[in-house]
Design a protein around this nucleic acid. Structure first.
Length: 213
DNA sequence: GAGGAGATCGTCT
DNA sequence: GACGATCTCCTCT
């Protein structure tokens, strides 16, 4: 239990030692916890994408093990943070067995606590967050959520997300997603047809609503 | 509300 | 030397 008052529990290492598709289906609804001194920032995962390892052309692991991506070839449940477009960071969690290179990209969070801190980090401190439309601007995208939680490669890459000592953790508060949708992944050019994006149906904090079917 | 361009730099070829 | 698992701003409708 991380913080008794919230009744949070860690996920097990075996939760992440599975196929990224299974982890991807089970992660929505779980919480990302960022500890900042006495403050605690919490967001609920509402959208993820699975990257399957070396055989998945869209995955960073497809290039083989490099200095940049070595975390996803390491033990499961660790943070893989990379820098993209010269502007943004993205947060992934390593999956499968050590040596496999699978991971899940965290694409969107629903803000739970620490909204003022997130807004400051996003330089949106002047907005009225009683308006849902504004709240969406905090963490409804992979780059945004990293900025809101001040996640960087320098600070967080390789961190164990299941350790009580870590200031970046994933936890379960017992919340269960009612219905999960599956779509193709966003923003990739290789293997774009694979249905590996998982999002909470009807949640306004996803990066892009699923095309209804 | 939709669509397109630009920003900006680490990583790999 | 090219490009990318993105975001924001600007223009047009």
């Amino acid at each position: 239990m991380i913080t008794p008052e919230l009744n949070l529990k860690h996920l097990s290492r075996s939760f992440f030692s599975r196929d990224p598709r299974k982890v991807g289906r089970d992660l929505p609804g779980k919480l990302i916890i960022r500890k900042q001194g006495r403050k605690i920032l919490v967001g609920r995962i509402v959208e993820v994408e699975a990257y399957l390892g070396q055989d998945d052309l869209a995955a960073h692991a497809a290039a083989g093990r490099t200095a940049r991506n070595e975390v996803i070839f390491g033990p499961p449940g660790h943070a893989y943070v990379y820098f993209i477009y010269g502007v943004h960071y993205c947060l992934n969690v390593s999956c499968m067995a050590e040596g496999d290179g699978g991971c899940v990209l965290i694409r969107a969070l629903e803000p739970v606590t620490g909204i003022e801190s997130m807004a400051r980090a996003r330089e949106l401190g002047d907005l009225d967050f009683s308006v849902p439309r504004n709240l969406r601007r905090l963490s409804s995208g992979p780059g945004m959520l990293c900025e809101a939680l001040e996640i960087t490669r320098e600070r967080d890459n390789g961190k164990d997300l299941l350790s009580d000592r870590s200031d970046l953790q994933i936890a379960d508060d017992g919340f269960r997603v009612k219905k999960l949708l599956t779509t193709t992944r966003i923003g990739i050019t290789k293997s774009p047809e694979m249905p590996l994006r998982y999002l909470v149906e009807g949640n306004v904090y996803v990066s892009k609503a699923a095309i209804s079917k």
